[in-house]
Design a protein around this nucleic acid. Structure first.
Lengths: 212, 212, 212, 212
DNA sequence: CATGAATGAGACTTCATTCAT
DNA sequence: GATGAATGAAGTCTCATTCAT
């Protein structure tokens, strides 16, 4: 998605928008939209402030580009993986959660999630894009997987959407915890371990077998 | 919160800080810290910009006051409720989740959660206060309840902290969903229903009895 | 000049304007007119800001009152002393300089001089009052004393006004030095000693007798 | 200082700081630090308020720059001149005083002196710089010249520092008089004439030969 | 293509001054 | 007479955005 600058002059200018987006992602993630300064972004990208305007008409557009470029790929990948899977839900769920845990560590997913949550009110159109293209897609994907598992008799009845929340919510919480409290010195969360334990819990329940 | 009509011209100073905090909560929740304008807060509180400075030394202090005043009470209440409870964890858990669902509807808890998540990087000291006084307290409370239930043999082994994430995470996700996507027209989430279904799921698991 | 409040209610209110002027003198002397805050003055005088307006219509008037009240008396006294003197100029001059040195130590004369110098451009009418009522009076007094001494043959020819500068200038310089540089730790000036040495110098000259 | 016409629109950045400092000197000299408005300075320099911040981080820094740039050169020149001089003190003194008189007419020295005096309390670090780099240097220079003359037997005993006050004080007084009272219509002082008469007076004394 | 320089608009904050009590 | 409370006006400073080069 960075292959959109025509290379008429053969420099490495092609990389510029990507570098700017990467820099902007960092700054927006650190400060939020309003508090982020274009000067910082330009400095971090190694270009002048004015150069930003060669690629993006204004700050809003840059923010939109950041959110779009930085995240969508993750979900595309997720979808492909999930759809390619053949096998019982009980085996897929741990894989899904572990994938989220890995994405949280290797990508800026947590930072972007924070940005979406924090700035959605100031960027309704952005929240809409996100909802329509990413979140509702992901939610629908998981819900569908669950509904299909229900149809196969693997999973108890219940609204698939809520089941999706039961499955994903703890990972989201872990990832926001990491983003919010670890920078101030709070004890870190081992997201991979959380993924493993939660997968077991959400599939089989917390209650001990005793009373059953 | 605003159930008083102005006597004539000036009001009694006692109510002012509360009115200002209420107005500030709304504006900060809508725009985030940096994008919030003191002029808006003042206007919404029915006072001049300068009047804000009679009660709070600067914008930071006002933000801190908002977070502190608006939320802590909820958690105090929660703790009292949980500690007073006598009975099996399987009965307490639904009560807890339902309480969170209710708080999410009747208070500004979701808005404040969003603010904390969005502004923590710019207000490390605020994040610290939140962590130390509210979040880690709440997390410890739930973890302790779970650990005690494990000691009684009611709950399976596993790290109590992760079990707490399994329990609470979906509610947090639902509450952020409401705050983030409902304003743009996404389908609403029935948090009370989510609380009920998730309580059942997290206690007994999603897997159908079949395969056991 | 402080006897202008009618004492209809017999409290010690009569002292108020004087207390305010004293407080204002300190604050104006420390900060200059523009940087002085009425809040500080009120606080130092032990009254509310609003109370200031019971005695002075605005900040300008208070400043004028400070300058008028605080200084004029010194000069009146000086004039009386000088005019009462009978004897040669060579004996009067040391007395005059020593009197200035003492006033610089026991009164806020240096501070007020600094204020006049610093704020005259912003208060032309004040500079005018000062010039007309105080400075030109004092200058004329000294000039006259010198002219009379010249008429008696005690002092060399030369413009009396310039002789007055030769006589007074070093004391002014010493007093401004004290006000300006001693607060930052510069070596202090012994004004009394300066007065003695300068009196001798200005009367008999710096040159050694050798070449005469 | 402004001998360049704008080429078309933007100017060459090199000249800007100097133009701004010149404008700031005027405004600070007229109003004092606190009462000076950045808007006035910007307007007088022919730039926007924001442009000021391209060259100086804040108002304080601009003030410091003004004081530093506007004055130090004068003293450097003075020192060179005095040190280069070979000859009796009785011949040097009139040259020194005349030089001060000329500087008072051709430079903004009096205005800056007024600023230093008026704002030293609010800018202790500025007063310190001034004292350490300019004033104490100049005072030491004159004191040293005097001490050397004393060693050669040209000048009477007495503390050189006080002799320096006797020498310089009247010129300072004249220069402050000009700055303070001439704007309001007081009779002007002829500083060159003052320099001449005072040189004679301070060297040979005011007393007529009669009584000796 | 790229940028240094510049700015208009607007934000936070301060403070002299007023007013109902 | 006195004040706590309030505010309008203004000032400093910031920053997204533009433009000539």
């Amino acid at each position: 998605m960075a292959e959109d600058r025509e290379p008429r002059f053969r420099r490495r200018k092609t990389a510029r928008p990507g570098e700017i987006i990467a820099a902007a992602l960092e700054v927006f993630a650190e400060r939020g939209f309003a508090a982020a300064r274009l000067a910082d972004i330009a400095h971090r990208a190694g270009v002048s402030k004015a150069a930003l305007y060669l690629y993006f008409p204004d700050k809003d557009a840059l923010f939109r580009a950041v959110v779009g470029e930085a995240i969508a790929p993750n979900f595309v990948e997720l979808r492909v993986m999930a759809r390619a899977y053949e096998g019982p839900f009980a085996a897929l769920a741990p894989l899904l959660l572990e994938r989220i845990a890995r994405a949280a560590t290797t990508t800026r997913l947590p930072a972007v999630a924070k940005m979406i949550i924090g700035e959605s009110r100031n960027f309704p159109q952005l929240a809409r894009v996100w909802h329509d293209q990413i979140v509702s897609g992901a939610a629908a994907l998981v819900s569908d997987l669950i509904a299909e598992a229900q149809a196969r008799g693997e999973i108890k009845p219940g609204r698939p959407r809520f089941h999706a929340f039961s499955l994903i919510g703890p990972m989201l919480m872990g990832l926001l915890w990491r983003e919010t409290f670890e920078p101030i010195g709070a004890e870190p969360i081992d997201l991979a371990a959380l993924a493993r334990q939660h997968a077991a819990t959400v599939l089989s329940g917390m209650l001990a077998e005793t009373g059953r």
